[in-house]
Design a binder for these strands. Structure first.
Lengths: 170, 170
DNA sequence: AGTCTCATGTAATCAGTTACATGATTGT
DNA sequence: ACAATCATGTAACTGATTACATGAGACT
């Protein structure tokens, strides 16, 4: 369960409320680990029960500000250094490729060129994002930039692959 | 829910039992859409209830052979052509990158070079697989080969990215 | 006064994993 | 006889999505 650790990671930067964290998930983490509002609030309650975070301030409208505890930071470091990243990479994009044989060659090629377009669009979107952000040399900037670079390379790779794949359909 | 369609797709090739399909998931689909035994059996029952597949033979040891129905094939084609592949790409590998700031630079670099190694290994494994399989020009071969090529390119991309990223940690 | 954003929580449902449970057939 | 493989099913649990429900404070 990585959501737990994503929350710890964000709280390692600075204390935040569930609402703040929700916004972060909607923007910077959306492409890497999407999470819903209900999921975030329930997980925060559980993390507080475990003692990895604690409520350190209460604001207007019932706002609760959570802060990472020492145990929470230790757990975050443990996750980063001691546990293997081994997530199953389910890809429904790739799954479909296996079954293109039930379509006509034209339809199959259309699927692949559609993927190429999608990848190009993804690449363009990220490029715009890279250019619009003012990159400093703080932790968040450095690591955010690294993750974005991954996205750029990934989309470029996938576009080229999809174009090649379209030529393979007889 | 893509498991449903993965099963339809496999049954589009030829009729098969739950056990047969399980083996296919363990081998060729493992990297794209892993599924457990219990999941496959329960989903097959549901698909039969819906009428997208039907039991067309019974063998020893209670073996049931399922065949794709016309409605099932129509549904598979509909899924392939009319629905957007839009799966959330959760990546705990990338998620960790965001939080490398809580580690020492040495630890952070170790994580990234570890990823590079992992990718190299993945690439090698796939290369061996490509070389060991006797590729024909049937549908399954063509599309399986296309999916494998994706894996090769993906791992190569990720290795290069991880090596570059390690140089970015100050 | 009315609308938007901030802010939290819970219930129902779905997809996926782990574990349990059982038994027939084949090969040595 | 015994072990390996074939073969199916169900129960409990976890993680994620969708929907429901409520209300305070800010802005116009």
């Amino acid at each position: 369960m990585s959501l737990r650790h994503a929350l710890l990671g964000l709280l390692a930067e600075h204390p935040a409320s569930g609402y703040d964290l929700l916004k972060t998930f909607e923007t910077s983490l959306a492409n890497v680990w999407p999470a819903t509002q209900s999921q975030i609030y329930t997980e925060l309650s559980r993390l507080a029960d475990t003692g990895w975070i604690s409520v350190t301030a209460e604001g207007p409208r019932g706002r609760k500000e959570y802060t990472l505890t020492d145990e929470g930071l230790a757990e975050l470091r443990h996750w980063l250094t001691e546990t293997k990243p081994q997530r199953n990479t389910r890809s429904d994009i790739l799954l479909r490729v296996f079954f293109l044989g039930v379509l006509t060659p034209d339809q199959a090629r259309a699927y692949l060129t559609g993927l190429a377009d999608l990848s190009q669009q993804g690449h363009d979107d990220l490029r715009r994002l890279v250019d619009s952000v003012d990159w400093g040399d703080d932790d968040l900037s450095v690591h955010g930039r690294i993750a974005l670079e991954y996205g750029l390379r990934f989309n470029a790779m996938r576009r080229e692959w999809a174009e090649w794949a379209a030529t393979q359909i007889r």
